[in-house]
Nucleic acid binder design. Sequence first.
DNA 1: ACGCGGACGGCAACCGGTTTCCATCGGTGA
DNA 2: TCACCGATGGAAACCGGTTGCCGTCCGCGT
Lengths: 351, 351
Amino acid sequence: MTRKSEDAGRSTIRDVAARAGVSASTVSRVLGGVYPVSTATRTRVMRAVREMDYVADARAKAVAGVGTPTLAFVLEDITGPSFAHMAYGVEREATRLGHLCLVCGTEGDVEHELEFVEMMRAQRAAAVILVGGTADTPEYRERTRRVADSLASVGSRLVLCGRPPLGPGAPVTVVEYDNEGGAYALVAHVLAQGHRRVLFLGGKPDHTTAQGRERGYLAAHRARGLDPDPVLLRHGDFTRDSGHRLMREALEEGLEFTAVVAATDMVAAGALTALHEAGIDVPGDVSLAGYDDIPFARDLHPALTTVHVPYEELGRLAVRTALGRTPETPDEHLLLGTHVVVRGSVAPPAS
Amino acid sequence: MTRKSEDAGRSTIRDVAARAGVSASTVSRVLGGVYPVSTATRTRVMRAVREMDYVADARAKAVAGVGTPTLAFVLEDITGPSFAHMAYGVEREATRLGHLCLVCGTEGDVEHELEFVEMMRAQRAAAVILVGGTADTPEYRERTRRVADSLASVGSRLVLCGRPPLGPGAPVTVVEYDNEGGAYALVAHVLAQGHRRVLFLGGKPDHTTAQGRERGYLAAHRARGLDPDPVLLRHGDFTRDSGHRLMREALEEGLEFTAVVAATDMVAAGALTALHEAGIDVPGDVSLAGYDDIPFARDLHPALTTVHVPYEELGRLAVRTALGRTPETPDEHLLLGTHVVVRGSVAPPAS
DNA sequence: ACGCGGACGGCAACCGGTTTCCATCGGTGA
DNA sequence: TCACCGATGGAAACCGGTTGCCGTCCGCGT
């Protein structure tokens, strides 16, 4: 029966005080570190703390107003490489700034998203970061604006990350990257190689990220006085399987095209495999480009020409701007740039 | 001056009580839902709640013992696909069971890991899940055992996920997958094709996951009465860049081999690119295999033969066994199986 | 020797909830 | 008509911390 086994369970600050023969306030002050405490007392208290392996309950501290602040991160699916990189940036920056980091997955379900936000409001999270595109309907704006207000009313801040702003007046921080601009540059590059029938493998038609990239695709055509054939616009989602399926269908239909631009690298990866399966050479017969520049893009064969998006930086920026603000700070709207990364998957058309 | 603008900030349960003309206890009871409250009172309270957009402070509830439980997830880098899938499983299962999910990234630094665990102890997390291999030294076991004890003393549970157990007696749940077995099966498959010089691109020499896979590599050889040339064992880390570099170096050295087994799919991806860059055909000239079966493995060219690891299930299982236990439950040690997925990257050697 | 001030530490109030215990009230059966 | 009972709601204690306020004690200067 060692002395040690007397830790009958969670011990409170008063238990520690009793053992050290002082009051709870003194223990609190010793642990706090600033208030003057005599060396003898401090030693006794610290010994008791050590012997009991005491750690103050962070929740109680939070109630008293001195807790570790928390920040919440709500996304669709952390499994997607771009989301994972944003999550990485968010988490790194949050812990750098001494915040805890809560993560919630919504599976893309708006109801879940609302539930999570409400929970985070109850948690009094310093900031709630909503990540990823969504359907930009009037209801969305209305709803999200209410969410922003109710978060603001408990002192926490809503951040929209890669998601459309709500118009003026909502207490919101927006951090976006330029989907349209990136797609424009990418498609311009493809067109400059001489391609004229460029298949676009997009995402859900009402998804803002997908829409932005699609707009870039169209704009790049128009800038050259071209008007792309509507049958070249395909819609799916942002998964590898979607790219694979869409590509296979297009091939089976006998659709004519000399280049493919996918809405994400994942989609491009699936499409590439479908092309390979059909015995089509890339970029000899067909060129292919992606979007996101995930690490794997280099390892596809041929290496994928794509648009680099600074996802990690995006995440870092989201938390930095959200946390480093005073009530007077004007609402910010940041737009990060992207750039085309030219690799081997785009070449001039065959003939 | 709308009536609404009187939400001067966070409102407490007493504010709600005042507005509804009842006591705080009554509000608590209405919100709690079980205690008998007259319809009239309930209505008045609910109206006040709605008008003030009140949400009870979850931290305060937690102190009172009725909070949303929380679970913590500590990993090296959420950017790795296999980690991301585990994270997904953990998060999904946690929210399914009504828990919040905290995530911490350690960058592989043991000090950070310890700091995080201490924070989670302060948070009174229901469970702390430590994810991913590590250096299995006596100090590690000693230290981790202390961590497990101190977590247990505040009522939370340590879970080791894909990490070596600590020996008997530590209050720990272990959920592992069979690194050695998977590597054994994979390498046996490669050897069965006729390969005799199989390059192994491993991880850090003292990393348990890397060690397990390396042991499988060796065991598969010995089972055939083979004794692999030590120069065929290379060490790096689990990144794509490591695979790329190791492969290039081996090529530059003029090392002889007819097959390559990489410790992870990421490593394999980098290696594949290095092989392509050197003009080597896979699997015509050299066969290649990976480990993890990340979604991308199918889209490499050729599609990667690899070992499937049920990462998502691993994460789910970790939280399920950690949370669904009573103090009497014996400490569990689960070992999940893996299986080889044969695709196109392994073929018999050239001649 | 006396007064003064700073160092130290305890009491009690507070953070924002929950819950036990008890008082009140209206209705019912004898 | 009165005693009794169940339904309802308030006061106060509690969860586990922090901190303002104040009393005590000690050492110092004059």
